[in-house]
Design a protein around this nucleic acid. Structure first.
Lengths: 205, 205
DNA sequence: AATATTATATACTGATGAGTAGATTGCATT
DNA sequence: AATGCAATCTACTCATCAGTATATAATATT
């Protein structure tokens, strides 16, 4: 193990490093936003939690709103990915909807997912809010589409897709509020239990 | 209709008037908190929306946190009332749970109910947050108790009360985010649809 | 070697907004 | 009539915090 690693980084390494720093910043910010709320979190505090100073944040990100927008975008992209995954999967509408709901719930228990749920658009500028709403809309549309599909192929009961989507979204989104990573069940286990319950409801069969 | 009403108010009338003003203040504040978030709402703005000045708010309420606390307390008391009502009602656990969920959803579409849902405890001082959590806990306990009862009397399927309560609470709470009073359905109609869906789930029977 | 770029810091500016001091008016009580 | 209290205002103070100006050191480029 002589000469384990050169101390001189290549250009690629430096890009990667920059990206890692950016990402660490976003994670720290999202965690604090989730804990205290956007307006109650100062960038000074975020910087301090990483042992750096505020201007360094501005070196990596444009302004406070952009910090939030990036966090939300990451979370929403995870949700898009979940929707695509569910759509590529074989199986009935029911099976794919369940898959999507599960992933959705899991994501909402993570840092960026929680940020998407906990931060309404009231923290954004009009343009930011518009873009955010459009992205959320896409996720909602994906959910409704899966429901419609399932109703068509008979694997899902004939429900109103709009009402069903609101109810299901609420159930999986709410986990952003109560789920604790240090609890008895992991995020995946919890998500599955939630979806199992939602699938059959609480009336006995 | 000579001498329709004396312009001199009685002591009682004055107390009532004071209370009405206090209440109008809380409604205006809650609406603004719901729209923009607690930290993004200044008391100057709340006052302006009523055509008064900020010190007048301080004449009726102690400070900004107390304004929020009062709004939350009103919302939570509505929820307690709903729980008591459901408990006094005759019928199976299923029927009473459904009743409670319905009222709960309706409340969450109103001003103070929305305030309870939209404002996490991150806006409160440690003591305020503790009291608020205790009250929320009582509502949650009431829901779980109803579920347990229903499972016992066989009117509800053998579900995990904790998971079920989280899922159901999420579904009815989420309406605070999406429900628009100017939509096609009224709050009561919407609530019933939501609860009907949750009762049977989306898997076909 | 000289110059540019990147990453970081300290120390400021300017706005916003919670909360207060003190004045004013009008009604109520003695 | 005199005094006190309720309701309201204008005009402040003080703290916080987003965002910036500017300095410095290290690394990269020519």
């Amino acid at each position: 193990m002589e000469q384990a690693q050169s101390p001189f980084r290549t250009a690629q390494q430096k890009l990667d490093e920059r990206d890692a720093k950016r990402r660490a910043l976003l994670i720290a910010a999202a965690q604090m936003f989730n804990l205290r709320g956007f307006h109650a979190t100062s960038l000074d505090d975020v910087a301090a939690s990483l042992g750096i100073s505020k201007p360094t944040i501005y070196h990596y990100l444009g302004n406070k709103e952009q910090v939030l927008v990036e966090c939300l975008t990451i979370g929403l992209e995870q949700l898009f990915a979940a929707a695509n995954e569910a759509n590529r999967e074989p199986g009935t509408g029911l099976e794919r909807l369940r898959k999507f709901l599960c992933r959705n719930a899991e994501i909402n228990m993570g840092v960026f997912g929680r940020c998407v749920i906990l931060s309404g658009d009231e923290n954004l500028s009009p343009e930011g809010a518009r873009k955010l709403r459009a992205m959320k809309r896409r996720v909602d549309d994906a959910m409704r589409a899966l429901i419609v599909e399932g109703v068509k192929d008979g694997s899902i009961a004939p429900v109103d897709p709009k009402v069903a989507a609101f109810a299901l979204a609420g159930a999986v989104n709410w986990s952003a509020r109560w789920f604790r990573a240090d609890g008895a069940l992991s995020a995946e286990e919890m998500a599955l239990q939630l979806v199992d319950f939602l699938t059959v409801g609480f009336a006995p069969r």
